[in-house]
């Protein structure tokens, strides 16, 4: 093959780019899953939650969550007719084994399942000093266990109290939105185990996902909207007293 010096020089940058892409490899676990084609969130319908604790148990089983810590939990609210600004909230063992009968009489009573809001502008990823926590290209806030130094900044930064330090690994831990499941086409463990459909995984980039129809036709709210976290945990029927 005859090539002039000029032709070789012109081809060099292209060859370098090709070599770099070979070195980088393909990091995705599921061959048909494309990071750029999804933007994950979740819908919680408070009017459907019965406080059975199935989601809390399922999450702990699926993700090996240490005893006494929660990636998701359920709170019970009692809002009295006379003091709506200060609701009585209880969550015995995160609601894992359900709830005892109400002590208070009357008022407004309901359950609120909680978990990571997978914020699009998450405060927790902004404070990480080592790049151990991040928002994946498909909108899930994750923790790199190998990189986490256990400084706990992110735990303090989360306005929703969704993170904890794993006592064994000494690294920050949180809901991964069952990333190992949703990348395989399954729903999250909590959604799978919810008997009433109060939780629905939502892919906001998928035009045929029922979330779009739901958001259009219902009064849906996120927690602490004034903090502008870009939360993607959408609540239907959220009472103003919920913090």
């Amino acid at each position: 093959m005859n090539m002039s010096r000029r032709q070789v020089l012109l081809l060099l940058p292209a060859a370098a780019v090709a070599w770099e892409s070979i070195l980088a490899g393909t990091p995705e676990a599921s061959p048909n899953y494309k990071l750029t084609e999804h933007w994950w969130g979740m819908l919680v319908d408070i009017s459907k939650c019965i406080g059975c604790g199935n989601c809390v148990r399922a999450c702990a089983t699926e993700n090996n969550v240490p005893e006494g810590y929660f990636r998701t939990w359920v709170e019970r609210y009692h809002v009295s007719d006379f003091n709506q600004a200060e609701p009585v909230v209880d969550s015995p063992d995160g609601g894992k084994e359900g709830f005892p009968p109400m002590l208070e009489e009357g008022g407004k009573n309901f359950f609120v399942p909680k978990m990571c809001n997978h914020c699009a502008d998450s405060p927790c990823t902004q404070v990480c000093p080592v790049g151990a926590t991040f928002i994946s290209p498909d909108g899930v806030v994750l923790v790199d266990k190998q990189y986490c130094i256990g400084c706990r900044y992110c735990i303090q930064a989360c306005p929703y109290g969704c993170r904890f330090l794993n006592p064994k690994t000494e690294t920050a831990e949180k809901c991964t939105l069952c990333y190992h499941r949703i990348t395989k086409g399954l729903t999250t463990a909590c959604c799978e185990a919810c008997p009433t459909g109060a939780r629905q995984l939502a892919d906001l980039k998928n035009p045929s996902d029922p979330i779009h129809e739901f958001l259009r036709t219902h009064a849906v709210q996120v927690l602490k909207p004034h903090m502008a976290t870009g939360a993607k945990l959408y609540y239907n029927g959220l009472d103003g007293s919920v913090r």
């Binding site: 990091p27 676990a29 990071l35 991040f134 994946s136 994750l142 790199d144 190992h180």
Partner: peptide, 9 residues
């Protein structure tokens, strides 16, 4: 590569 590691659970 942390993304693939988490997805491998």
């Amino acid at each position: 590569t942390a993304i693939a590691e988490i997805a491998a659970q």
